[in-house]
Computed example of a mutant assay.
Amino acid sequence: MRSLPPFPPGLAKLGRRLPPALLSLHFTAGLALAQRCRWLEPPPELNGRRFAIDVSDLGLRCLFRCQDGQFRPYWGKTVDLELGAAAIDFFGLLRGEVDADTLFFQRRLRISGDTELGLLVKNWLDATERPAFLRSSPLS
């Protein structure tokens, strides 16, 4: 994976000022689009589970849940599983350039909460076929 310069530290301060509800709406809209395009289908074991994605270098935190096979924004405070990493590491996962185990053991991916659920999500994402446009991105 190509290394990019880090984001300016002030960007994380700005990101932390954005309302999580607004971020969660946009994030789940992206998940819903990926699902509609058949790029991402949640397994039934995710039903009723709550998640948080923390993009540390941008100060962004998105909360969502999976309900009846659909991704929905989540407005609560407690989650079943939280994943945290820098933006470039999440992009590497998204593109399939790096796997979650590698990032975890390099301490670049933080996982907290239900470890069994974390393993299920990791295996599901690893097995998901990436669309061609992600595999041939100009970041290569």
Rank of each mutant, 00 (worst) to 15 (best):
M1H: 10
M1N: 08
M1V: 14
R2N: 12
L4A: 01
P6I: 02
P9A: 11
P9E: 14
A12R: 09
L14Q: 00
G15H: 15
G15M: 15
R16E: 10
L18Y: 13
L18G: 10
P19H: 03
P20D: 10
L23G: 08
S24R: 01
S24K: 09
S24N: 11
L25F: 11
L25C: 10
L25T: 11
H26N: 09
H26K: 04
F27G: 02
F27Q: 01
T28H: 02
A29F: 04
A29E: 09
G30W: 01
G30K: 08
L31K: 01
L31N: 01
L31R: 00
L31I: 05
A34Y: 09
Q35E: 12
C37M: 03
L40Q: 08
L40P: 02
E41D: 07
P42M: 11
P42Q: 09
P44K: 04
N47P: 04
G48E: 01
R49P: 03
R49G: 02
R50F: 07
R50Q: 14
A52H: 01
A52R: 09
A52G: 03
A52N: 02
I53Q: 08
V55D: 10
V55E: 08
V55P: 05
S56A: 15
S56E: 15
S56C: 10
L58Y: 15
G59R: 03
L60G: 00
R61A: 10
R65D: 03
Q67S: 14
F71H: 03
R72C: 15
W75E: 11
G76H: 05
T78S: 13
T78P: 00
V79N: 04
D80H: 15
D80K: 10
L81E: 10
L81F: 06
E82K: 12
E82S: 13
E82R: 15
L83I: 02
G84W: 05
A86V: 05
A87Y: 12
A87H: 08
I88P: 02
D89R: 04
D89C: 07
F91P: 00
G92D: 06
L93K: 13
L93M: 13
E97D: 13
E97F: 03
E97N: 09
D99P: 11
A100L: 14
A100Y: 08
L103A: 12
L103F: 07
Q106V: 00
R107S: 04
L109V: 00
S112V: 13
G113T: 03
D114K: 06
T115A: 13
T115N: 12
T115P: 09
T115H: 08
L117P: 07
L117R: 04
L117T: 07
L117N: 04
L119W: 11
V121D: 00
V121F: 10
K122A: 01
N123E: 07
L125M: 14
A127S: 15
A127Y: 10
T128W: 03
E129Q: 14
R130M: 08
A132N: 06
F133S: 07
L134N: 13
L134Q: 12
S136H: 11
S137G: 14
S137Q: 08
L139C: 00
S140H: 14
S140E: 14
S140P: 05
